[in-house]
């Protein structure tokens, strides 16, 4: 679905990507994690053709995004972090925009609005930020585009809405669809994404499926000094020391994205070594 090869991109003199390569396939929900300013949003804008690579290539569904051809654009949708919606009613917004997306489903859209409990009598400008975002997410999902990009989609959503968001997204993905979610609120994506890509300083720091992470990494509370000393990452918690460690005994533990993220950012080489060891052993 998305093939990025040797991507170089800079804002004037500030280098963002320096030879980034990445491949994303349909049928998955990808979580794009990283610190502020590491280029998550820039990568999404490159993928949808709003920014052009300085070097390297981006191919999405066999097309070059930068050309912004309608055939490409009606198959992708972006829910940007800061977004614009015109001052019209929800009904009118759909009437005016849905005809540009051939796979748009009114039925699905209404279902998502109901799920998010959006009042439809207001115009979009009279809605709160969270409500507007939910309208945009609902519209983006109902467009049934092959690629859906979301930049910090849970920002501005209340706790209930975040939970509904996860439910809605989980139900929306199918084998033909690829959803890429960029966020720094890693907790919001737990149990939703099936592949995690962590970007730092314009490079892919970590890129693994959830299955692979569950097989190779354990997340637990430990009091065992040796285990703590050998851990990939540790931090105090109310129950004891929360650690990230290699899953040598193939135990089932609950994935903690926040801990994983911290482990990768602070001790990336050791975490990657665990996965490399797996491949070497196969």
């Amino acid at each position: 679905m998305i093939k990025i090869k040797n991507l170089h991109f800079a804002y004037k003199k500030r280098k963002i990507f320096n030879g980034l390569s990445l491949s994303l396939k349909a049928g998955h929900i990808y979580g794009l994690l990283g610190k502020n300013g590491t280029g998550k949003s820039t990568l999404l804008r490159c993928i949808i053709g709003l920014l052009f690579p300085d070097e390297g290539t981006i191919e999405v569904m066999g097309m070059t995004p930068g050309k912004r051809h309608p055939d490409f654009l009606h198959n992708v949708f972006i829910v940007a972090e800061e977004f614009y919606l015109p001052d019209v009613s929800v009904e009118r917004f759909v009437k005016l925009n849905a005809p540009f997306y051939p796979n748009f489903s009114q039925e699905q859209f209404m279902q998502y609005l109901d799920e998010f409990e959006i009042p439809q009598e207001n115009t979009l400008q009279n809605m709160s930020y969270g409500q507007k975002k939910k309208v945009l997410i609902s519209f983006g999902l109902a467009c049934n585009t092959a690629l859906l990009l979301m930049d910090e989609p849970t920002n501005g959503l209340d706790i209930m809405s975040k939970s509904k968001f996860r439910k809605v997204i989980a139900g929306a993905v199918d084998e033909n669809k690829c959803i890429v979610i960029s966020t720094h609120q890693v907790k919001d994506l737990e149990s939703l994404i099936d592949r995690i890509t962590i970007i730092d300083e314009g490079k892919i720091l970590f890129d693994q499926t959830i299955d692979s992470i569950n097989r190779q990494i354990q997340f637990k509370i430990s009091f065992d000094q040796q285990e703590i000393a050998e851990s990939l990452y540790k931090e105090p918690s109310l129950q004891g020391l929360a650690i990230v460690t290699a899953n040598t005994e193939v135990e089932d533990t609950r994935l903690d994205l926040e801990l994983l993220y911290k482990a990768v950012v602070t001790n990336g080489d050791a975490v990657r070594a665990v996965f490399n060891h797996q491949y070497a052993g196969q």
């Binding site: 949808i48 912004r68 654009l73 949708f77 614009y84 919606l85 925009n97 540009f100 997306y101």
Partner: peptide
């Protein structure tokens, strides 16, 4: 003038129509 504003620019440029 929407192109001078990122939010509006994204809304306008990603609309499936040719330039």
């Amino acid at each position: 003038n929407m192109l001078g504003n990122r939010d509006k620019g994204i809304y306008w440029l990603t609309l499936p129509a040719t330039h």
